[in-house]
């Protein structure tokens, strides 16, 4: 019985953390759908956004800092699209992938120049008393982060499916020449997508920063998203959401039940173990875009 409650607690914790994985993964899905490229710089963007935010907070206060950071991330996005990706239109995906690597280095480098290499704490002033729901403890900060992440996820889904730009984006993902033939402007959509990816990075940076502090390891968030993308399918929005939750739960349960037996450290490999299983049995991922083939 105790094990059961413990299991439920772990599952809930896993779901809460998983919602953040979902959000981070959606940042990748966004760019991948628009330009068929795995944006390696997403992690660096997260770090850059978080560092900018914590750097600005002491100067201007939280809300102004948040607003300014949104502006900065918009600027980064426009710069990335104009200076790096636009000239590479039509280039091999591998070339563009390497360009995202380059962007990651530029961002990490300039983050160091502007904000130094010190880790920072980020206090969002969230309430800390745990929540008690039906005899199950739920961490309050986790709960609030999850709400925020869920909010962003819903916003992104609405963006994809209910807005004109979202439709244009999905059209481009399917056939960019046909998309152009109906007046969908690749560049405009790309710029908007990069700005959105920047904002997702900021949200992720903020929520992660509040959990574990803001430091350079944050850019490794890209590695955290990788298994999520493998499980969910890199082109799939629902895939990213569900896979994020799966990874969160797998990590929490793994750490909670298997961890004590082997002396911990299970958390970090759980995601990859699950991803490996998916690679073996469902290589396109949970909801990876099925190849539509008619005969």
């Amino acid at each position: 019985m105790n094990d059961l409650i413990y299991g439920i607690e772990l599952t809930i914790t896993g779901l809460l953390i998983g919602s953040m994985y979902s959000m981070v993964a959606l940042g990748f899905v966004l760019i991948f759908k628009a330009s068929s490229v795995f944006n390696f710089a997403q992690g660096a963007m997260t770090l850059f956004a978080a560092l900018t935010l914590v750097g600005l907070i002491p100067m201007v206060g939280f809300w102004v800092a948040l607003l300014l950071t949104v502006g900065v991330m918009g600027g980064v996005a426009v710069f990335a699209e104009r200076a790096i990706f636009r000239p590479l239109v039509g280039a091999e995906p591998l070339v563009i992938f390497v360009a995202t690597l380059g962007l990651a280095f530029i961002l990490e480098g300039s983050a160091q120049i502007f904000w130094g290499t010190q880790p920072h704490g980020l206090k969002l002033g969230l309430p800390v008393e745990p929540l008690m729901i039906g005899g199950v403890f739920v961490s309050m900060p986790d709960f609030i982060s999850a709400l925020a992440a869920a909010f962003f996820v819903i916003l992104l889904v609405l963006f994809f499916h209910k807005t004109r730009i979202g439709l244009g984006l999905r059209a481009i993902a399917d056939d960019h020449v046909a998309a152009q033939s109906m007046g969908i402007q690749l560049r405009k959509v790309w710029t908007i997508v990069w700005v959105l990816a920047g904002i997702v990075a900021l949200a992720a940076g903020m929520l992660w920063g509040a959990r574990i502090g803001v430091h350079f390891a944050m850019s490794l968030i890209a590695l955290k998203a990788l298994p999520v993308l493998i499980i969910g399918g890199i082109e799939s929005i629902p895939g990213a959401i569900v896979a994020g939750l799966i990874v969160g739960v797998a990590e929490a349960l793994g750490e909670g039940f298997i961890g004590p037996l082997v002396g911990g450290g299970v958390q970090d490999i759980m995601a990859y173990l699950v991803a490996l299983l998916f690679l073996m049995f469902r290589p396109y991922g949970l909801f990876g875009e099925e190849m539509i083939e008619r005969v």
Partner: peptide, 12 residues
Amino acid sequence: QVLEGRRLFEHL
């Protein structure tokens, strides 16, 4: 222009 080969957005 209606492109040769129709070129629909298959997943839409």
